[in-house]
């Protein structure tokens, strides 16, 4: 179902007490973030429904990865509130934040595998840090997760011996080792060949369906998103400018979606970075 945000926010929605209400696992209200005076988010409102796959899309530099960092508490916002599973992320202590992160998986764009450890130890790392499970049980859990991503046979390979797609799948196995409630995927399809891309797509969908994990995807590949996402949110100019079903959002007729999904070089997102007068920069004004 299509719809635009920008509707007036009611007090009931905005109040922290009402945060856990509804089906939204992540609730963002009035999020404002500035980098060097430039507003990346300007009063962003967003709900991420529980148990669904939500794709966050938008032009480069629009703050999609920054949003993931806000959700995981890696980055504090200048203004606004953000709740994850009813917890106000900004008010969590470091211990509270770490407790929350144990329930959140994060797939980094470059996989971020620990290069000193082999595949098995990378997946076992969170288990060894946070549990006192016997070695046999850790082994069983790790092999189960590696089997789920099709890499049980690669358990003893080092990260340097993996292809990009394999590394991404190992990172995914590590991200799901605690069966999290939420997985955040930061550009999971970048640099993957069609086979690896489809493998990752299948894994995202399977994990969502079998484990009921809420997934948030930051990606640019519309074809891939259409295969896997339940909902697309388009962010531009620091706000959500469109949201809806992935197969419908591209046809909603708004200038934002027309430019973004049509790949038009100029439009609401200008081709030129803001700059002064071109002629003056070239010194033409002085010679004329």
């Amino acid at each position: 179902m299509l719809g635009y945000l920008g509707h007036p926010m009611t007090d009931a929605i905005a109040s922290p007490e009402s945060a856990p209400a509804g089906d939204a696992l992540v609730r963002v209200r009035g999020l404002t973030t500035r980098f060097s005076g430039r507003a990346v988010f300007d009063g962003l409102d967003l709900d991420i429904p529980r148990g669904k796959i939500t794709a966050i899309m938008g032009p480069s530099g629009t703050g999609k990865t920054t949003l993931l960092k806000h959700i995981t508490g890696q980055l504090a916002a200048d203004e606004g509130e953000l709740w994850v599973d009813g917890e106000d992320v900004a008010r969590l202590s470091r211990e509270g934040l770490f407790k929350l992160r144990e329930r959140v998986g994060y797939l980094f764009q470059n996989s971020a595998l620990l290069t000193d450890f082999d595949v098995f130890e990378n997946v076992a790392f969170p288990l060894r840090q946070h549990t006192k499970l016997p070695e046999e049980l850790i082994r069983d859990i790790v092999l189960t997760k590696l089997q789920a991503v099709g890499l049980r046979g690669a358990a003893r390979l080092m990260p340097s011996e993996l292809s990009g797609g394999m590394a991404r799948r190992v990172a995914l196995a590590r991200a799901i080792v605690f069966d999290p409630m939420l997985i955040l995927y930061d550009e999971p399809f970048v640099g993957l060949d069609p086979i690896a891309l489809n493998q990752v797509l299948k894994l995202i969908r399977t994990l969502n369906e079998t484990l009921g994990i809420t997934s948030v995807l930051v990606a640019h590949e519309l074809a891939a998103i259409q295969q896997v996402a339940d909902r697309v949110v388009l962010i531009a100019n620091g706000k959500v400018v469109a949201e809806g079903h992935p197969k419908e959002i591209a046809d909603d007729g708004s200038p934002w979606t027309r430019q973004f999904f049509g790949g038009e070089p100029d439009g609401p997102v200008p081709f030129h970075y803001p700059a002064g007068d071109y002629a003056a920069d070239l010194g033409l004004g002085e010679t004329a």
Binding site: R101, N110, A112, L113, L114, P126
Partner: peptide, 20 residues
């Protein structure tokens, strides 16, 4: 480790990279 996001990955796995 910083450049390849390994420290951020530890943070995200609720492991304090300063301590580890």
């Amino acid at each position: 480790m910083r450049a390849t996001d390994q420290l951020s990955a530890m943070e995200m796995m609720a492991v304090d990279p300063v301590a580890y």
